[in-house]
């Protein structure tokens, strides 16, 4: 099985075989991260641009390190401090980068669908690093890689996603990916933060965290996105923490070997108790390592030859 797509825009379009190819390729990549000399010559002469219209520390540094470990050249562009601030359109920015000979554009953008739009405008491979509230496929792939590594397989597992599902592109990508791989996905959060169409994506909806956590193998705790919480969708952080925060006591409801995951950055004491975040079931730091491995795998697969032609 070979990778055939030009871009990675979301997990909704991917087949289970494609997801497995990415996860399988990330295994040898992880070995490279563990070496003293973290460098292979694989992408020598290729160039990767990270184009970020929203703030990010881990996703961006993760992509840049992934590219550097494979010997690609990287350039980082932020919306502030670039021509975007002067009003240049996304299409023009994309065409400019193409004219400079860029092979891969990694983009984060506040508008849902922005990555797909850019992918249609330029011949370079586009990796969606988060578009609005739509998808964040590399985060879901690294979550799935982490689960698969710990549990052996994804099929048949019960995964609870806790928090602000409405604004979460991480949740959407995880639901698409995990259900395709045969896992059961439960979502739970304040009713105001559960989108009405979420059941159609294949997730089971819960409004009580205790019921959702019953017997699950994985708890993926989402960040309460403080920057998106100005509309009064829940009364207070304190109340959220009391009703939906993941603490030691609530963990007792899960399967005894359940994994605790968080895409970061954490609001410790709000959605997750520090004891849980740093406890022995937490794989939050490993998620970060695995993120680099999964992104190395994607950069490798997307820089393949002319046969990577299926555009969407």
């Amino acid at each position: 099985m070979f990778w055939q797509r030009k871009d990675l825009l979301g997990l909704r379009q991917l087949t289970p075989e494609e997801i497995n190819l990415v996860l399988d390729t990330a295994v040898p990549m992880k070995e490279i991260i563990g070496r003293k000399i973290k460098k292979t010559p694989t992408l020598r002469g290729r160039s990767v641009v990270t184009l970020f219209y929203e703030n990010s520390t881990r996703t961006r540094s993760s992509f840049e390190l992934a590219a550097k470990f494979l010997s690609a050249d990287t350039v980082g562009l932020s919306a502030s401090g670039s021509s975007v601030a002067k009003g240049e359109s996304l299409r023009d920015t994309g065409l400019t980068l193409t004219a400079m000979g860029v092979d891969v554009v990694v983009m984060r953008h506040p508008a849902s669908g922005a990555a797909e739009y850019l992918a249609r405008c330029i011949p370079a491979a586009v990796i969606n690093a988060g578009d609005g509230t739509h998808e964040h496929p590399t985060q879901a792939l690294l979550d799935m890689f982490t689960i698969r590594e710990k549990k052996g397989s994804l099929a048949g597992l019960k995964v609870a996603i806790v928090g602000d599902i409405l604004h979460s592109r991480v949740a959407r990508s995880n639901i698409w990916g995990l259900t395709k791989m045969g896992a059961e996905v439960r979502v739970v959060g304040p009713a105001t933060l559960l989108p009405p169409d979420i059941e159609q994506m294949g997730a089971r909806v819960y409004t009580e965290v205790e019921a959702a956590l019953e017997g699950v193998d994985v708890v993926n705790v989402l960040r309460i996105q403080l920057e998106r919480q100005q509309q009064g969708l829940f009364p207070s952080l304190r109340e959220y923490s009391r009703l939906f925060g993941i603490n030691q006591k609530r963990l007792e409801l899960t399967a005894p070997d359940a994994l605790i995951m968080h895409p970061g950055p954490m609001n410790r004491g709000v959605e997750i108790d520090p004891q849980v975040a740093y406890g022995n079931r937490s794989v939050i730091n490993e998620q970060v390592t695995n993120g680099v491995a999964v992104r190395m795998a994607l950069l490798y697969l997307l820089t393949g030859g002319e046969h990577n032609a299926i555009s969407h």
């Binding site: 055939q4 390729t25 694989t42 820089t303 030859g305």
Partner: peptide, 23 residues
């Protein structure tokens, strides 16, 4: 040893060959 990531023909192949683990 898996040498896929060190091949000198990666830019000329139609598809990226599968990478396996070095152990």
């Amino acid at each position: 040893l898996d040498i896929t990531l060190y091949r000198d023909d990666l830019t000329t192949l139609a598809n990226q060959p599968q990478v396996h683990q070095t152990e």
